[in-house]
Amino acid sequence: AEEIWQQSVIGDYLARFKNDRVKALKAMEMTWNNMEKKEKLMWIKKAAED
């Protein structure tokens, strides 16, 4: 689920960090860890469908 979420937001994060992939990935990891369980559930369901 986290991978699907990352694939959907990586472009936004890379743009925000001027294509600094290391910073973008760290920010994504922090965002994922801070997400509410119900927000993650949507992505977990999406992962299950694929």
Rank of each mutant, 00 (worst) to 15 (best):
Q7W: 10
W43P: 02
V9F: 05
R16D: 04
G11R: 13
R21C: 14
A27T: 04
I4N: 07
W32S: 00
Q6T: 08
G11F: 11
I44T: 05
K23E: 12
Q7K: 13
I44V: 08
E49Q: 09
Q7F: 09
A1P: 10
W32Q: 00
T31P: 01
K40L: 04
V22C: 13
Q6W: 06
K37G: 12
M30R: 07
D12R: 10
W5D: 00
E2Q: 13
R21K: 13
K45H: 08
E3I: 13
Q6M: 14
L41Q: 09
K26P: 01
W5R: 01
Q6H: 07
D12Q: 10
M30Q: 13
A48C: 15
E49R: 09
D12V: 10
L14I: 05
E39G: 02
S8T: 11
A47S: 07
A24S: 04
W32T: 00
A47P: 03
Y13M: 05
E29N: 10
A48D: 08
A47R: 03
M35L: 04
K37D: 15
M35A: 01
I4K: 11
G11L: 14
N33A: 13
Q6F: 08
D50C: 15
A1G: 14
D20L: 03
A27S: 05
K40M: 03
E2W: 14
A47Y: 09
E36N: 11
M30V: 14
A15C: 10
E36T: 14
K37L: 15
A15P: 04
E49L: 12
K46Q: 06
W5N: 01
K46L: 13
D12A: 09
K18A: 13
K45G: 08
A1Q: 03
N34Q: 09
K37W: 15
R21P: 07
M42R: 14
M28Q: 01
L41M: 09
Q7P: 01
E29K: 11
L41A: 12
W32F: 02
A47I: 06
M30P: 01
L41E: 15
E2F: 15
D20H: 04
W5L: 00
E36L: 05
G11A: 15
D50M: 15
K23R: 11
M42S: 11
D20W: 02
F17A: 04
N33R: 12
K40H: 03
E2G: 04
W5P: 00
A48Y: 12
L25R: 07
M30S: 09
Q6C: 11
T31V: 12
V22A: 11
A24P: 00
W5V: 00
S8W: 10
K45E: 13
I4M: 15
D50A: 15
E3Y: 15
D12H: 11
M28T: 01
L14A: 02
I4C: 12
S8I: 08
V22H: 09
M30F: 14
V22Y: 09
M28D: 00
D12G: 09
N34W: 04
K37I: 15
M35G: 01
K26H: 11
E39F: 05
T31L: 06
L25N: 06
W43M: 02
Q6G: 10
R16E: 08
A1W: 08
K26E: 12
V22F: 11
W5Y: 04
K38T: 14
K46T: 06
M30A: 13
Y13V: 03
G11I: 13
N34P: 00
R21D: 04
K45Q: 14
K18S: 12
A1F: 04
E2I: 11
